[in-house]
Simulated assay, not measured.
Amino acid sequence: MTKIYGIKNCDTIKKALKWLTEQQLDFTYIDYRQDGLTAELLAEFSAACGWQNLLNTRGTTYRQLPQEDKENLDETKALALMLAQPAMIKRPLLWHKEQYHLGFKPEQYQQIFDL
């Protein structure tokens, strides 16, 4: 089963969902804000992708954090921040064939789905 995780107002999520739909691929969309996010699932994401890759430091949510939240960042602190504010998780996060894939580019998805 293919799953795609993100937040609905993200432009990259919209592009990825459109691409998947246009390719007539079966998938389940999980919205962190609507469907929720558990610490266990976030830890699984981190184990698969690395917390540094998962944390979107270029996004508005991260940039607006107080400086003390950004200092001495380690996995525990980063996961707590992402759990509290899922907009800090890079998007989309795709689960397909027992693997996680971060980001969206049509070429990347073509390779993932063997198209």
Rank of each mutant, 00 (worst) to 15 (best):
M1D: 11
I4T: 01
I4Q: 07
Y5W: 06
I7T: 01
K8F: 10
N9Q: 11
N9R: 13
N9L: 12
C10Q: 09
C10L: 13
D11I: 15
T12L: 15
I13T: 11
K14M: 13
K15S: 13
K15F: 11
K15H: 14
A16G: 10
A16M: 11
L17Q: 14
W19P: 03
W19K: 05
E22A: 03
Q23S: 14
Q24H: 15
Q24P: 00
Q24K: 15
Q24E: 15
L25F: 08
L25G: 05
T28Y: 05
T28D: 12
T28S: 09
Y29V: 03
D31Q: 02
D31K: 02
R33N: 11
Q34E: 09
D35K: 08
L37N: 02
L37D: 01
T38V: 07
E40Y: 06
E40T: 13
L42F: 11
L42W: 12
A43H: 12
E44P: 00
A48W: 05
A48C: 09
C49W: 05
W51I: 06
W51L: 08
Q52I: 11
N53D: 11
L54V: 06
L54S: 04
L54I: 01
N56R: 06
R58C: 09
G59E: 10
T60G: 01
T60Q: 08
T60E: 05
T61S: 08
Y62K: 09
R63G: 12
R63Q: 15
Q64N: 15
Q64K: 15
Q64F: 09
Q64T: 06
Q67R: 08
D69G: 00
D69K: 15
D69H: 13
K70G: 07
E71Q: 14
N72A: 07
D74N: 15
D74M: 04
D74T: 09
E75F: 10
E75M: 03
E75W: 07
T76C: 11
T76M: 14
T76P: 05
K77R: 14
L79T: 04
L79N: 05
L79V: 00
A80T: 13
A80Y: 08
M82P: 04
L83T: 04
A84E: 11
Q85Y: 03
Q85T: 12
P86V: 01
P86S: 03
A87W: 00
M88G: 07
I89K: 03
K90H: 02
R91M: 02
L93R: 02
K97F: 00
L102C: 04
G103H: 05
F104V: 08
E107C: 05
Q108D: 10
Q110F: 03
I112S: 05
D114I: 00
L115R: 00
